[in-house]
Amino acid sequence: MVEESGGVTKDAPKIPPFTRDQELTAFREMLLIRRFEEKAGQLYGMGVIGGFCHLYIGQEAVVVGVKMAARDGDQFTTSYRDHGHMLASGMEPKRVMAELAGRRGGYSKGKGGSMHMFSRAANFYGGHGIVGAPAPIGAGVAFANLYRGDDRVSLTFFGEGASNQGQVYEAFNMAALWKLPVVFIVENNRYAMGTEISRASAQTDFSKRGAAFAIPGKQIDGMDVRIVKAAADEAIDWCRKGNGPYLIEAQTYRYRGHSMSDPAKYRSKEEVQKMREEHDPIEQVRARLIADGVSEDELKKIDANARKIVSEAADFAVADKEPDPSELWTDVLA
């Protein structure tokens, strides 16, 4: 699935191997997100989580691969399918879960919910409910990096559906014009809610969407965390050297509906099943670790640990109180 489109390098790179430590890190991080999202789905079913809840299950390799390429201080911005990005950014699972539950211990004191969460400490700039909003906001974060003359890179995620919004191209133009250090990562999970890409996009190769602005683009298999990390390494390096923005289209897949209330009848069960069986990002890593001689037991321990973290997060969220009524009126103005 690796394909060049922007012309940065001519040869399709070989899949760069991970060290065993890197494989284990990727496994641990992706599994944490998977278990967290499974739990969030359960809590939604129990009525603990309300409103909209968009699960990241299936897409874990994208954010984890990018995070493994990022440096401390690089900023993350995404739209509403954001739980995985927050965990990858190092935000505390229990406070993310508490926010999903609308509790006072949540990152936004229960006032933001699933789609609107932030952490200045973790350099996570949202969490935006408007699908294309991360593009200019992430470019603005990069503007601040350039303005200050530090070498931080803004890592900006949005979906292929958002890629059809005008503001994305306004951001591309300025980012290229001013050589802003921003990597735009299109997470192409093939369905904008219920609309398959070919029904909504005249150009379904999203890595070409920056070509009009001479933004180098690369279309990659977003289900393979090694490929994501390698592409992100190259993109981040490109940005950090002052070359301006870079566009990655990570081809991925969400196993669940668009949100919890979406039965996903617009695609076949077979299609989902095939992706799960043949391309699952976590199973790919597990298979390589086993082949490398890591024992099932060790992997089970990692899984058990992820389940424990998530279970504690859920317990915390359920037990935590709702915000004090006085919180209705706070944080309106600084």
């Binding site: 200019p136 906001i137 603005g140 974060v141 601040a144 306004e170 133009n173």
Partner: peptide, 23 residues
């Protein structure tokens, strides 16, 4: 003092992002 393209939606968003980041 930064001239922009004619791109109000975009530069308003860029301004907001820069403000989030402390400018």
């Amino acid at each position: 003092v930064v001239d922009t393209p004619i791109t109000e939606y975009g530069f308003a968003g860029v301004g907001v992002g820069a403000a989030f980041a402390g400018l």
